[in-house]
Amino acid sequence: MKFIVTGSTGFVGQNLKTFLEDKGEEVCNLSLRNSNWHENIPESGTAIIHLAGKAHDTSNSSNLDEYYKINRDLTIRLFQKFLLTEIRDFFYFSSVKAVADTVSGELIEDVIGEPFTPYGKSKIEAEQFLLTQSLPEGKRLFIIRPCMIHGPGNKGNLNLLYKVVEKGIPWPLASFHNQRSFLSVDNLCYLIYQIVINKNISSGVYNFADDEYLSTNELVKEIAKILGKKEKLWSISSLLIKSMVKIGDVLPLPLNSERLKKLTESYVVSNHKIKTALGIEKLPLTAKEGLQKTILSFKKF
């Protein structure tokens, strides 16, 4: 099979490329940074996996127009080109944040999208365009909404949390009680491959998440366990913390309101739909196994 991957130099792209090549599949890198990218798309292939995009900037310093130019307009142009080829499948990597900045209960696919950030709005507008298009016979469209993706080589909030525990700094946000879904990059790659090889899977929107969810406090304990340290959890008033981080909204401090939200909010995502479509009960890695693999990788740096 032949896979055309955009964003192949990013964290997910590199992992997916390795995963597919280990399966003996052909992977073609498609850079959308080149003005003539449309001339480099193969006329035939198994799937375009569109990973390239502008990520959410928690420092809120990005040009807002860039979100729409990259996440929406570029996706539309790529999809229109896809329709003119003999490539069978088109995967658009959106985000759970395209439909909900906050979640009450468990997030499912048919929720009405109400994003508040330019990132979320640009993603949902791309989704809305794709879902209104007619697909020629034999072609499939998959809109993938992953939750927080992690794995070896990832430098996100998990790495920040790791450094806090590694340095013996007490975790000051223990008063925030939450439940969060995560997505191991290994489980992500597995799901993509299973969709491609299963020709009976219907086009549609699918959430990607690990089977279980954990709290941030549980994560701190898990990191401490792997490091052979005793966890230090401080339960400082959540109201006081929320007031203090507002300073970071103005000054370039490590913690601002947006980062606090990412670290402490509850955000549970259902993966029931994709598992039902594939006829599987469990993903290869549990949430804890995936997180342990990621955390252990931080020790090498």
Rank of each mutant, 00 (worst) to 15 (best):
P252C: 11
E43S: 14
L183H: 10
S94I: 07
V220F: 08
L296T: 13
L158Y: 14
E21N: 03
K288Q: 15
L239P: 00
R259G: 02
G45D: 05
K230C: 03
S59I: 00
H38M: 14
D89N: 13
L173F: 15
D89W: 01
S181C: 09
S122H: 06
D89P: 00
Y92N: 03
E265G: 00
E43N: 15
I274R: 11
W171N: 04
T294S: 13
E281C: 04
S243K: 15
K121Y: 01
G105P: 09
T85Y: 06
G45S: 06
L135G: 09
K282W: 07
E258R: 13
E231W: 02
K163H: 12
F91H: 08
K242I: 05
S270V: 07
K229H: 11
L20Q: 06
I241V: 14
V268W: 09
L283P: 08
N63V: 12
P170V: 04
P146K: 01
G248T: 08
G120E: 12
T46E: 15
S215K: 11
M148I: 13
S238G: 00
G151C: 04
G45E: 07
E166W: 04
P115A: 08
A277L: 12
I223A: 06
Y213M: 06
G10S: 01
R72L: 08
E231H: 11
A126I: 06
K123E: 05
A277K: 13
V5P: 00
N40R: 15
E21A: 01
E258F: 12
E26K: 14
C28R: 13
